Simulated scan of single mutants.
Amino acid sequence: MTTPVLTAATIGRYLSYLQERERAAATLQKYAHDLNVLREWLGERALTKQTLLLWKEELISKRAPATVNTMLAALNGYLSFMGWLQLRLRPLRIQRTLFQDERRELDRQEYVRLVVAAQRKGSQRLSLILQTICATGIRVSELRFITAEAVATGRAEISNKGKRRIVFLPDKLRHLLQPYLHRQGITAGPVFLSRTGKALDRSHIWREMKALCQSAEVSPEKVFPHNLRHLFARTYYTMEKDLSRLADILGHSSVDTTRIYTAESGIVHARQVGRLGLVVT
């Protein structure tokens, strides 16, 4: 049996394997980061079950359970690829929370303030990005599928994680995007481009959003692209109460994932329970 190792070369081989299987670019980036964190932590230590258990204990003491599990997923995938199944570690068992943390839940009023702040800052592109993600429920990584052609037809074909789905663009959004395309001279391809003509990446959008926090008076903990997708999901479910249809719109394989998106905060739940009027005395 080959002596288990974790090197830049073997990590590269594993990432190439994942790329050939059309794993998302964001997944590759995350796995590369997590495996390199482990590689630096190992130093001269051997890649053994005992050593990996020590690493897991350190992760548990310093990171959130969900983060620990994503890092273990990166490790276990690598170990399976290398054929070292006996070294894999068990993920943490996490009980699904019934409520969202209100400190991280973006509400509609805060979303509107972010859009207005972007407009006041003179960043029409950012204002439209916020509205496009929130009005369609797409992932930030799917923004590149919002093209001039999609604006013209009112429907974008999204290809992600080996699945395809159609996302419809509301007429109001199209009416905002059409003059923007005209001013930018974009007649085909992605609507939102960098100064060099490339599609915007997640980190660029994240930084621009964070820069709005102070002027919009919104907590930085609430301001990240994926929270716009959560706001879309909660708003849709509140109106339609159709979890299965929402799962299709969001591109989820399981409605269990969609339930996480539609969870309200504990404050909202407490208010709902209070309205039942079942306290008699």
Rank of each mutant, 00 (worst) to 15 (best):
R23G: 10
A118M: 03
T147Y: 02
H252D: 04
R88V: 08
E102P: 14
G189K: 04
L18A: 09
R39E: 15
K49Y: 11
G77F: 08
I138A: 05
K62Q: 13
A263T: 07
D256R: 08
I205R: 08
G43D: 10
P190G: 11
E142K: 04
L98G: 12
Q178P: 03
L72C: 05
R155N: 00
V280Y: 12
S244E: 09
A46S: 15
L72I: 14
T70K: 14
I205E: 05
Y180Q: 00
L38N: 11
Q50H: 11
E208C: 08
P65V: 05
Y236L: 06
A135G: 01
G137A: 01
R165W: 00
S254K: 02
A270K: 14
V218H: 07
R104K: 13
A46T: 09
G274R: 11
K121D: 03
A26E: 15
R88F: 03
T10D: 09
H175E: 14
V37G: 08
E102V: 10
N69G: 13
Q95P: 05
R164M: 00
G185S: 13
S16C: 01
L128C: 05
A64Y: 01
V218A: 09
G122M: 03
N76L: 06
S219F: 07
L177W: 01
L59M: 15
L52G: 04
V68E: 11
P65H: 07
L200R: 06
K161Y: 09
R103E: 13
T281S: 11
G251C: 05
R39M: 15
